[in-house]
Design a protein around this nucleic acid. Structure first.
Lengths: 245, 245
DNA sequence: GAACTTTAAATGTCTGACATTTTGATGGCA
DNA sequence: TGCCATCAAAATGTCAGACATTTAAAGTTC
């Protein structure tokens, strides 16, 4: 590995790319120690600060971890699902906000993906998943709950639904779609009537999942999709009305 | 923004986090210029190299871009879909390989999500999407195509299917599931008979999408799922047989 | 043999300098 | 006046060397 053509651009970017490629291709395996900063500086014929900048780039992507001390150094890091979740959610959220994705597009994507999980969840959900869903439904019915807390609980409910499929890859991909929508959902004002409808649909979903009835779960999710889209349209209309009275 | 409690950990990580939070919260908007490295060093009361390491971390996440010269500096970057795709695919691929995700889990996730897109794709696909799908089907039928090229074409076909839904959020989330599976798919040896079956199913899918027939597309995708899972099992069995003859 | 001390290796950080790139201003010339 | 060449300034990119801090292992003492 680790040659560095004399192209004209950031050395630190080139070095980071070389190491990243080595990790991706499997030349560097998990928990393997990279050469020390000084050695890398020698190999690439650059200074130590430049190497450090490259390593920080990799650290930002969770590809390596560094450890100080005598046996320290930079180690290839096993990317954990939790870290990947967090990273994915952050990126998805930014992607949506920076590109001004409209509520409808995000909502459609979210529920389409979620409906893909429902049959698997109906098949495999554990009592734990059901308990989480029921607990969140109960929380959503509490009086005096803020809109934001209601959204939080909504996300937790759907998270449990997705996790019920017991497929970490699915959970990972869904996390981006479900949680990244939260800022958009937070623009909505949930009236008591809205909440009653949503809680009723959540209950139907939980019942269907408990009964291992994929078709009913899908039907309820379909209704929830329509309901959520309508809430989004109402929120947009209300916002437009406020802007130009 | 930008205070930095005297906690005991990487200063560059703390600074990166402070700036990242400012971007996420909207305090820094797209294309806004950050203070120069020297000014940031002053503000955070650290040296310039430390600030640079922080900026490189952010650059690694595509959150900023830097520009040299008199009016240069670091600018908040609009995260584009293409970059987000690439990033997401890299991360997903690594997540799968480092955590030794089995073929079945990845395959299940991939097809579950893809089936979620099919109805939307049937509704909205353009002639362009259909043309891409047909072209890839044709390519897959070419004699002498390597297994790797066959996989590439397979990914391109499914990419067109997903893109047909015309929902960039959906395409983004799916990219991780579909493309990250490629290394796993590459372990499979596609016999001519396998290829014929897959091409036939692809043709059925394309026909269904062209006819806007979501149910038929779903049925074909379901068969393709079963077929792919079987191929995976066969590949595993063959591998196991080679390992202990 | 156990507890303490020393040492060495590595990352984390700082200072100061120089190189390079780009913009804008300055000034000369037609 | 208007245009072009030159130069200064500002910013990032890079380097060299130094010191601080952390950590584990080797060495030392009882």
């Amino acid at each position: 590995m680790k040659i560095d053509p004399k192209s004209r651009s950031d050395l630190s970017a080139q070095i980071a790319k070389a190491i990243r490629d080595a990790i991706i291709s499997g030349d560097l395996i998990v928990d393997e120690r990279l050469p020390s900063e000084a050695e890398l500086a020698d190999q690439f014929d650059v200074s130590r600060p430049t190497v450090r900048e490259a390593l920080k780039r990799l650290a930002a992507q969770n590809l390596i971890r560094t450890q100080r001390g005598a046996t320290g150094g930079a180690f290839v890091r096993r990317l954990s699902y939790d870290e990947a979740y967090a990273h994915h959610i952050t990126t998805s959220t930014l992607l949506l906000s920076m590109n001004a994705v409209d509520f409808q597009t995000a909502c459609e994507a979210r529920f389409a993906l979620e409906r893909a999980c429902a049959p698997l969840s109906a098949e495999r959900r554990t009592p734990d998943h059901l308990a989480t869903m029921r607990a969140e439904i109960h929380r959503q019915g509490q009086p005096g709950l803020s809109d934001e807390s209601f959204c939080d609980s909504d996300v937790a409910f759907h998270r449990a639904l997705v996790d019920g499929a017991s497929n970490p890859v699915l959970s990972y991909q869904l996390a981006g779609a479900v949680e990244a929508m939260q800022p958009l959902m937070n623009m909505i004002t949930f009236t008591q009537r809205n909440r009653d409808v949503i809680v009723a649909l959540h209950t139907r979903i939980a019942d269907a999942i408990e009964a291992r009835d994929a078709a009913s779960a899908d039907a309820a999710l379909s209704e929830l999709t329509a309901c959520t889209l309508q809430l989004g349209r109402d929120a947009m209309a209300a916002r437009a009305a406020r802007a130009s009275p």
